[in-house]
């Protein structure tokens, strides 16, 4: 299976230097060769599909006889008791923003324009 450093970097929103590209190409070839040993393990199509549902905790719920839905809560207003006090005020939420605009209490993240204007 081929690995294109340029294509994957684009997908990952990374810009690599020429040095990084060269180093990564060699390293990824070695790493992918190593992880390629998994290809030898047979897996049916049904098993592959089931992996979409796999979760690490499912087996624990089963082992302990617990109901997985017990950790869910109703689709209710965010001021419910278990997360009360977690909601951040506008200024708190934007306190780490590189650039903001707007008025206090209604601050917005400022970003470059994404629509080209004539």
């Amino acid at each position: 299976m081929s690995f294109s450093v340029d294509k994957v970097a684009e997908l990952a929103y990374l810009k690599l230097s020429a040095e990084e590209k060269s180093a990564f190409q060699t390293q990824f070839e070695q790493i992918l060769k190593y992880v390629g040993q998994l290809q030898a393990i047979p897996m049916t199509e049904t098993e592959a599909k089931e992996m979409g549902e796999f979760h690490i905790s499912s087996a624990f719920y089963k082992e302990l006889g617990l109901d997985p839905s017990a950790t869910l809560r109703g689709d209710e207003d965010s001021e419910s008791t278990d997360i009360r006090g977690l909601n951040l005020k506008n200024e708190e939420a934007l306190s780490n923003a590189p650039k903001t605009g707007g008025i206090p209490g209604e601050l917005l993240f400022e970003v470059p324009s994404i629509i080209e204007r004539d």
């Binding site: 450093v5 990952a12 990374l14 810009k15 690599l16 990084e20 990564f24 990824f28 790493i31 992918l32």
Partner: peptide, 17 residues
């Protein structure tokens, strides 16, 4: 690209692939 170190970039790329 400027913010992440090499190992982080390597793992992000492996995972993306």
């Amino acid at each position: 690209s400027e913010g992440f170190g090499s190992e982080v970039k390597r793992r992000i790329m492996l995972g993306t692939f």
